Simulated assay, not measured.
Amino acid sequence: MAGRRDEILDAFVRSVARRGYERTNFADLASELGMSKGTIVHHFGTKDQLLRELQERYMRQRLEEAKRILAVTQSAADRVAALIYAGVFYQAYHRDEAVAFQREIVHLRDSPALEDARKMRREYSELVTAVVRDGMADGTFRPGDAALMALMFYGSVQWMWTWYEPDGRVAPEALAAQQVDLVMGGLMAGSAAPLDHPRLAKLVHGALGL
């Protein structure tokens, strides 16, 4: 039963990523999976319930991965860099999940059913902000509004789905390194030792189970 339920949710994620929530319907999902619409209704009831589970599953996984990243990094610079690497890797290696989550993010703003997903998103945002704030406190990052700075760099990675091409000319690891260098240019308080990009990429690969 659990396997069939996961199969339906995975098909829903793929459909939302490619066609959007409004154009996703049970008839198409049933046809793709070779099952009746009644089977989907039995497991999920409504399309809104599927969206709720999509959003919650995505944020739960991202939070778990972020905590693993923080557990194996020490400096604020390494932590911010690793979180950026993770954000880029989601676009490449968890493409459908990232696109499905982001393109329907507007639903998180006011849907009562998505309160748990909103809480997890706030927790993730607070986690990133805390890393930036720690870097400001120890002099690694220039002073400023930590929440705003975190939102700017975190948001830029989140919206990569609108332009990023997984099969493009730049590999995800190289793209992530460029994104990190761009962000660090604005965050760092002064000169610092160069980041070890191969080590960071390897670390994040491990945290994400890639």
Rank of each mutant, 00 (worst) to 15 (best):
W163R: 05
D138L: 08
G34F: 08
V88L: 07
T73G: 01
D116L: 13
L151T: 13
V131S: 00
K202P: 00
L51T: 06
R109N: 10
F44M: 01
D28K: 08
Q61T: 12
K67T: 13
R79S: 15
E165V: 13
R14H: 07
G34A: 10
D116Y: 12
T162Y: 06
R109A: 15
E64M: 03
H205Q: 11
D110N: 12
Y93V: 05
Y21G: 05
L195C: 05
Q91H: 13
E123C: 11
R60E: 15
L195W: 11
P143S: 08
Q55E: 05
L187C: 10
A77G: 01
G168W: 04
R57C: 01
E7V: 02
D6L: 10
W159V: 13
P112E: 14
R52I: 04
M120N: 08
V16N: 00
A192N: 07
R4I: 10
L175T: 07
E115A: 15
M59L: 15
T140P: 06
V13H: 02
A137C: 06
A176Q: 04
G185A: 12
G34P: 03
I105T: 13
A2N: 03
L203K: 02
P112Y: 13
M35C: 12
M136N: 05
G135M: 09
A174V: 11
T140N: 05
M59E: 09
I40M: 03
R57S: 09
R79L: 10
Y90V: 01
S75Q: 03
P112A: 13
E165S: 12
G168Q: 08
M59I: 13
S156W: 03
D48V: 12
A113S: 10
R121C: 11
A189C: 09
D10A: 14
Q178F: 05
R199A: 15
V16K: 01
F12S: 01
G186C: 02
F141K: 00
P166M: 07
Y124V: 14
R62Y: 01
A174R: 14
V128Y: 02
A113E: 12
R199L: 09
A98H: 14
D145C: 09
A177P: 00
P112D: 11
T129R: 02
L182S: 15
P198M: 05
D167A: 13
R52N: 06
G186R: 10
Y85G: 08
E7F: 03
Y21F: 13
H43L: 09
G209C: 03
V157G: 03
L208K: 10
E53F: 03
E97Y: 09
V183A: 13
N25D: 15
A192S: 14
V128F: 05
V132C: 11
V131N: 00
E22C: 00
G209I: 10
E64K: 09
A81S: 15
R52S: 02
H197W: 07
E165I: 09
Y154S: 06
G168L: 05
S31C: 02
T73M: 07
R57M: 02
R62F: 06
R14P: 01
R60D: 12
Q158L: 12
Q179H: 13
G190R: 14
L151S: 11
R133Y: 12
A77L: 07
R109Q: 13
M184V: 11
